[in-house]
Structures are given as C-alpha cells and as structure tokens.
Amino acid sequence: MAQWDLLFSGATVFDGEGTPGRVEDVAVNSGVIVARGLNLPHDAAKKVIDAKGKWLLPGMLDIHTHLDLEVEVAPALDEVVRHGTTTVLVGNCSLGTCFGAQESEGQEPIVDCFTRVENIPKAVLRTCAKKMTWDNPEDYLAHFDTLNLGPNIAAFVPHSMLRIEVMGLEASISRAPTEVELQKMEAILEGAMKLGYLGLSTDGLPFHYLSNDPHTEKRIPTQFASFNELRRLLKVVRKYDRVWQTTPIIENRLKALFYFTLTSGRLFGKPLKTSALSAMEMTAAPKSAKLFLGVAKLLNSKLLDGRLHFQALGTNFRVWSDGIVSPLFEELSSTAELIALEYDDYEGRQRLMGNAE
C-alpha cells in the first residue's frame, strides 16, 4: 500500500538553506515533505512526477505586494503563482481593504488612497470596491474562504484605513485624533492581532497623495500621525510580537532615524520587528546602501536592541511607465499636478502642458 501521496523523482532541489542545489527525490504526504534522498521507492507513492532536469524549491513568500484589490476580481493571481510564489502579504504601506469600501457621506477612501499611490484608474477601483461585502477585519479574513485563491494570503492592518475607519477621511488628514479615537484605534488593532493579522503598516514616502478633490494636494492619512500615535499603536503590535511594516521618511533623515527608534527594545521595553521598504537610487545616491546598513546596524546593536530590516532589491532595476502616469513623477510638483487630473481629462492635461508658468 502506498505510504506517500506524491514523489518527485530526480529533481534538482534547492531547500532554502543557502547550499547548492542537489539531485534527489522528495516524497510528500498530506501536503508535508516526509522524505528526501536518492532512489526513493516509486511504488511507495500514489503518484510519481519525473522531475529530472527541473528545479524543485520551497514556495516563495512575497512580503510586499499591493494585490489587495486584484485578489477580489482575479483571486487565482495567476501571475503570482506562475513565478513560484505561494504566499503573498497585503495591506502594505498603510493601504488595504480590511475595513471594506468605507464609503460614507460622498467619501471614497479606496479610490482616494489607491489611485495615485498604485496608479489604478478610478473606474477600476470603484468596480473593486463594489465587490466588498465586509466592513471589519474579522469578516475580511473570513471572506477569503469564499474565493478560489491561488496563493496563500496574509494581511497587515493598514494605518491610513484605520485612521479613516475611526476618524473619517476628512478628519484623518486635518487634525490629530482625540483620546477616545486613539483608544478606539488601539482596540481595533488589538482585535486584529488576536485574529492573526501580521501587524501594522504605515508609510512615510513624500509622493503618496490622495486623488479626489478637494484633497489632491494632501498626502495619505498615515502621514498625518504623530510619533506618539505610532508609539501607542505599535505598543499593541509589540505586545503580540508582530511586525511594523513601513517606509522611510526620506525628506528628513533625522526624523526618519527618530521614528525608526520605535524598533528598540532598550527604549520601549521589547524589540519590535520592523520591515522598512526602500528603493535605493544608486546613481544619484551611490552610498545609500551603506547608509541603510549603518542605520540598521546602529538600531539592531546591543545598545538599542532593535529588529530593523530593510526591504530592498539586491540588484538594479528599471521602471517603465505609461506616459506621465507613474508614482515617481509625484516627486516633482509640475508633474504631480498632471497626475492629479483624471486619467481621461485630456483638455485639462493640455491646459497644464501649455501653461508657461
């Protein structure tokens, strides 16, 4: 009687331990690897896959995606799994959908927050928002059971959406939260940690703007939070040994370093796992890699007892954009005005392009 469900025969196996690939057989039963080695018996498996000349490796984990909306309309996420990724994390950079569409009093937070940050047309975002039947973090997780998912999904609580949920969009970009509102944010976040959320995501990049009038010159809500607000919310994350996902405040290095001290166990009682996304401009700032490594070394030292790790590609890459529509052009005030216009506002774009001022 077969003791294994599946046997991969003669594969070149990369096990993720950093060692060179080696040819061997791998047996799987009930979704778990139960045996590895040469010449495992074929008659012990219900199914044998001849993997000679092919690579076999653990499913990859994509720790930074913005598939929050795509997974609702195309849950198989074919382009993800065909590259070998079996788990994706959503809710990054303070944006996500765990509170549903959050539409009220004419406000469209999904449209307002995602359009310019992710360069997704508003019509597409409104279609995605209509598919959202939940309005809280618990029901959000439960709804994945109804989808025919390709990869596994795990989520952060997105700080911009948390502020909107408690304060409303207008207040979240115009004033500080009251004590009652801050306590409510803490309670919601704690509830999400108990449900299994990965942690909290925030954002500090200077070119993440809202897209709807009259707020096109305002940044997304997370960037209006004070150090004290983040300290209190991250105390909850720290309590459950979860993760703070963020981006550096690149406009002010000293302020960025100050905020990154929130990872410190020495200063705040317990180390906080911190994952900071950063694309390094190697042409204009060739020493940026050394700077990031130096910051991490300082904060992770015995003196500060932090757990800061930067997310950065280990190689150069190019960015291709569809004309002016790219988050990178948000860094310039002139091109940011163009991007702030509706995608189909041809006359408005021509008017700006023809303005000598």
Rank of each mutant, 00 (worst) to 15 (best):
L308T: 02
N92Y: 07
H42F: 12
T65A: 04
L308A: 02
T335D: 02
V81Q: 12
T222F: 00
L89T: 02
N355H: 04
P206M: 04
E72Q: 15
L262W: 00
D15K: 05
V71Y: 03
L125I: 03
M1P: 11
M132C: 11
G21N: 04
L205C: 11
D43H: 14
I173E: 06
I49P: 06
H66C: 02
S211I: 07
L293P: 01
I188F: 04
L89P: 00
S321D: 07
N252D: 15
K218W: 07
E357Y: 14
N252G: 09
L338G: 09
E190P: 04
L291V: 15
M282V: 15
A312W: 10
F317P: 04
G10V: 09
E186W: 06
L195E: 00
V26F: 04
D62E: 15
I63T: 05
T202A: 04
F114Y: 15
K270V: 01
T115Y: 05
H66W: 08
A336T: 04
E347C: 01
A192T: 04
E72I: 13
K270R: 07
Q311D: 12
L95Q: 05
I250P: 01
T246P: 06
Y259W: 14
Y197P: 00
V319D: 03
F14S: 11
D344K: 13
D305H: 13
A27R: 03
R82W: 14
L267P: 00
Y140E: 08
G354W: 04
P41R: 02
A11M: 07
V237G: 11
F224C: 05
L272H: 03
S211V: 03
Q3K: 15
W244K: 00
V23W: 09
T115G: 06
V166N: 09
D213S: 12
S160E: 00
E70S: 09
M280L: 15
F317C: 01
V124H: 10
K270F: 06
H143V: 11
T127I: 10
D135I: 07
V237N: 08
V90S: 03
L57I: 11
M161I: 10
T19P: 00
D344R: 05
I153A: 01
D305L: 06
I324L: 13
D344W: 10
L304C: 00
L95W: 01
K218C: 13
G150Q: 05
P109N: 09
V124C: 07
L267E: 02
E347Q: 13
V236A: 07
E190K: 07
L147C: 07
H208W: 04
G168R: 11
L291F: 15
V124S: 10
L56A: 06
G306F: 00
D344S: 14
E229W: 08
L254G: 11
L262F: 01
P221Q: 06
I120F: 08
Q102K: 10
H143G: 08
E330R: 07
A101N: 14
A279Y: 12
F14C: 10
A176R: 12
C93R: 09
V13F: 09
F14W: 12
L125Y: 02
D43T: 11
I49T: 08
Y140K: 02
Q223H: 07
I220A: 09
N316Y: 12
R349D: 02
F227A: 14
N29Y: 10
M282C: 13
Q183S: 14
D62W: 05
